[in-house]
Design a protein around this nucleic acid. Structure first.
Lengths: 146, 146
DNA sequence: CGGTATCCTCGCAGATACTG
DNA sequence: CAGTATCTGCGAGGATACCG
């Protein structure tokens, strides 16, 4: 039985975490582009084709290895197209496929959301930290606490 | 209210990976909800308030620890609201805040994207694997994990 | 029920070195 | 330039046990 019933639930979101329900696809998409590197590659390539080095430089902090892995995985998933030019000092460029390009969409929405709620979140954090001074949940922020 | 204009194709995406550019917020948002658990919590809470146990049951595979951590982090970020009822066998429920609710939007878009491109990706994978039988990039697939 | 505290593992990711 | 290969660590996250 294929539950091809994408039944576009207007208000509700299909259950996702269940093993019996196949899931709403969230887990898939997160496994695919849930890591920051993939997303940042999409961001870079959203503005046009880039060569390996260009990507490496554009994405601060990524290691050669991770870039290779990321870009390979994305190639395999059909999100990026890899083109090798047999020049002397080998040249390769990457560009988004149709499928990959459709992601820029989501990435932009994500970016917009972040920008939109960034200070609300910062504020919420401050409030929380003020009320829970002992709490050590500080994952993802407050750098100066070694 | 829909405020995140997902459909507009404005211009270019701001550079993100740079240390000198502040960044487009992508890294922030990924640090915040980039992990699958957070997203799945959003998905569950999108359909209404849930108690701890309910969340735990709804999100298959999550450990108690991770649920606590995830939900705490989200509380701190002002994405979920935690309410404790001082009943005898303590009762707590979680619901999305305004900010958190604005995420359901993105999550739905993510879900839609996944559903929409799921088989294209599966196909791309098969094609890739056929052409690269030696390659061991199989990260993100080969589900057989009990 | 709704957590916290502890331990322990395994795999992701960084650094480094070598090749075509 | 554009990778591949290898070693290693570190820490996210699962399992378990125990409290209010």
């Amino acid at each position: 039985m294929t539950h091809t019933d994408v039944t576009t639930r207007p208000a509700e979101l299909a259950p996702c975490g269940q093993p019996d329900h196949p899931d709403c696809g969230i887990r898939d998409v997160l496994d695919r582009v849930g890591d920051k590197w993939s997303v940042l590659v999409v961001v870079e390539l959203a503005n046009g084709a880039r060569r390996f080095r260009e990507l490496e430089r554009a994405i601060d902090g990524i290691s050669q290895r991770m870039l290779t892995l990321t870009v390979r995985k994305m190639e395999r998933d059909g999100l990026v197209l890899r083109t090798v030019y047999p020049t002397v000092p080998a040249q390769v460029d990457y560009r988004l496929t149709e499928t990959g390009a459709s992601l820029t969409h989501l990435v932009k929405a994500l970016s917009a959301w972040s920008l939109d709620h960034r200070d609300a979140i910062a504020e919420a954090r401050r409030a929380y930290d003020a009320e829970h001074p002992d709490n050590e949940i500080r994952r993802g922020s407050t750098p100066g606490t070694p």
